[in-house]
């Protein structure tokens, strides 16, 4: 509390000043800028940040406040931005003083659960030690629990995690992530997790328009652009890809564009006698997109 505030009879605190001092604003802005769409997610993150900021201000007034439970679950299909948002969440929590370091440790079952007896506890603890002071992000967390096998080593990892989530609430925040339906099932079978997770955020699939924008952003970041006809091709590609199995939102677009860049390079080689202009080096042409197997399998799309 600053001196001015202490001197007045009825202390006042400017929420705007607190907000500015925390440095959270730029992180939220960055989240807005780097992630296309995801409006409901961004809204939830803002709400959480506001809640935590107000909690902090309340503490300055000496109002009773339990240290908030901050563990979260992020549900949604692959490629919907969960890891990126988790990384920004870690920064926000750090700026607001709810974690000490603000780094993110992302793991899956393989990092936590061992292959033989006595292997799991050290592995889980190793991960927890590295995550201390930051955010532990467990992707596809439900694989920790195997209903069909009650002697699965995952159970041991779950018990250690629950203990640390309860006892070390000041030391780290755990984010469990995965498909919504499987996560629901997981929480039903593990009430210990359900009761310790305070914030559930659902990540919707990207719209086709979102994905096109994401694709163009990715390319711009690598100094490429789509020609007019290539852009049209990609617009057709997106719904076609969505209809196929193993669709992973932004990740599928990234993979498609990686392959398109490969084809572009090959094409430039085969046209070797032409002068290489900057224009040609940076442009993805329609053919680079159209050669995808996605079109081959559903030619009309």
């Amino acid at each position: 509390m600053n001196d001015a505030a202490r001197d007045t009879a009825a202390p006042t605190v400017s929420l705007a000043a607190e907000y500015a001092a925390s440095g959270v604003g730029p992180v939220l802005q960055q989240l807005d800028d780097e992630l296309v769409g995801l409006a409901p997610v961004k809204q939830r993150i803002r709400e959480i940040a506001a809640l935590l900021l107000v909690d902090r201000v309340r503490a300055k007034f000496g109002l009773a406040s339990e240290p908030p439970t901050l563990h979260m679950s992020f549900t949604g299909n692959p490629g919907t931005g969960k890891t990126t948002v988790a990384r920004r969440m870690a920064e926000i929590l750090f700026k607001l003083g709810y974690v000490r370091r603000g780094h993110l440790v992302a793991v899956t079952r393989d990092d936590l659960v061992g292959q033989y007896i006595g292997h799991t506890a050290p592995k889980t603890k190793e991960v927890l030690k590295k995550a201390m002071g930051g955010v532990l992000f467990i992707d596809e967390a439900y694989y920790l629990y195997r209903q069909e096998n009650e002697r699965d080593y995952g159970q041991e990892s779950i018990e250690i995690l629950l203990q640390v989530m309860e006892n070390n609430r000041d030391d780290l925040v755990v984010i469990l992530a995965g498909y919504a339906d499987k996560m629901d099932q997981f929480f039903r079978s593990n009430p210990g997790f359900r009761s310790r997770v305070a914030h559930h955020i659902d990540f919707p699939d990207y719209t086709d328009a979102n994905l096109l924008e994401i694709g163009e952003k990715m390319l711009a970041g690598l100094s490429y652009r789509l020609s007019e006809s290539a852009r049209a091709a990609l617009t057709q590609y997106i719904p076609a890809r969505r209809a196929q199995p193993l669709f992973a939102n932004a990740r599928s677009i990234r993979n498609a564009l990686d392959r398109a860049r490969l084809r572009q390079a090959n094409r430039l080689f085969s046209e070797g006698d032409q002068a290489l202009t900057l224009e040609r080096l940076t442009t993805i042409e329609e053919a680079d997109i159209r050669a995808s197997r996605v079109f081959g399998q559903s030619p009309g799309a």
């Binding site: 000490r100 370091r101 050290p122 927890l128 030690k129 590295k130 201390m132 002071g133 930051g134 070390n168």
Partner: peptide, 17 residues
């Protein structure tokens, strides 16, 4: 007591051990 702890960010991890 176990191996040296590499790649830690926060001292609390050491205190756990």
């Amino acid at each position: 007591w176990g191996l040296p702890m590499f790649d830690l960010h926060d001292a609390k991890g050491v205190l756990m051990e």
